[in-house]
Design a protein around this nucleic acid. Structure first.
Ligand SMILES: [Mn+2]
Ligand SMILES: [Mn+2]
Ligand SMILES: [Zn+2]
Ligand SMILES: [Zn+2]
Lengths: 135, 135
DNA sequence: TTATTTATTGTTATGATTACAAAGATATAG
DNA sequence: CTATATCTTTGTAATCATAACAATAAATAA
């Protein structure tokens, strides 16, 4: 499997200890985590880690195109190391965010409107996930 | 043109003075405003208006289905009285949000995945708008 | 080594949203 | 009409995510 520091170099990001740790977490926990979730997961083994560094790191990753930021959650920014075109589903009940891969590729085509220079597309679904439907 | 208080009654919302004013603003200013923009626009002519009331009012409108909340802006919630299926474009430079109507209807069809009970779909584009491309 | 750049940290500020209780307005029963 | 219950608005305070900023530390270049 591709190591986090190798992946970072592909995007011209110098792999510091903190950056590698954040990227490693993203690669192994593909749950679209928030800044706080990343920080809370890493700080036990990196006691000097600052949340500011997590913010800086993710901003850099997005700027360099190594991860994508999701705006599906109105409250927090969420991050996805899978930068391929795919949709997301957010459960209104448990808040978990799932990938939606079975979308037609045309979903991510740009519309005919030429007034805008479009860089990225977000396709977001909202509803109730399987395990929450029982409640 | 449909009056705001008539529109509210269609969604079983009692039209108080504040609610009608907020809805009237949304109907006449289809710019996907934030809570703060709505409050700032109304408070000069309604000096006792509370921002809490604007929050409560928009929450009620969304709950009753009279407006849709957009998550395209990571910072603020934005509201749209146009509840038909259409996409949005956000300019990274000026922050303005434009409607994208020329999307195929299939964009808003639900995917084959049956594990999720899907209530709504958001299609959001990000980039630079025409007038900001000159800079 | 020394100077310069880059990365990380901690503190503080800002701004959006929520929680909650009090006050005011409206509707309804008697 | 008047009392009572319900709905609506208001104000304050708390919470929480994020940004700004300066100080420290580490890495790199000269
Ligand atoms: Mn994903
Ligand atoms: Mn719109
Ligand atoms: Zn769920
Ligand atoms: Zn613009």
């Amino acid at each position: 499997m591709l190591q986090s520091h190798q992946y970072l170099r592909q995007f011209s990001i110098k792999p510091s200890v903190q950056r590698s740790a954040v990227m490693n977490f993203l690669m192994k926990n593909r749950i679209h985590p928030t800044i706080d979730e990343i920080y809370m997961a890493l700080v036990p083994t990196m006691p000097t880690l600052s949340k500011t560094t997590v913010y800086n790191t993710l901003d850099l990753f997005v700027e360099k195109g190594a991860v994508q930021a999701l705006v599906i959650d109105g409250r927090n920014a969420r991050y996805d190391v899978n930068i391929s075109a795919h949709g997301h589903f957010m459960c209104k009940s448990c808040g978990k965010i799932h990938d939606v891969f079975d979308l037609d590729a045309s979903m991510f085509k740009l519309p005919e409107t030429t007034d805008f220079k479009i860089d990225s597309v977000d396709v977001s679904y909202f509803g109730v996930c399987k395990s929450c439907q029982g409640n």
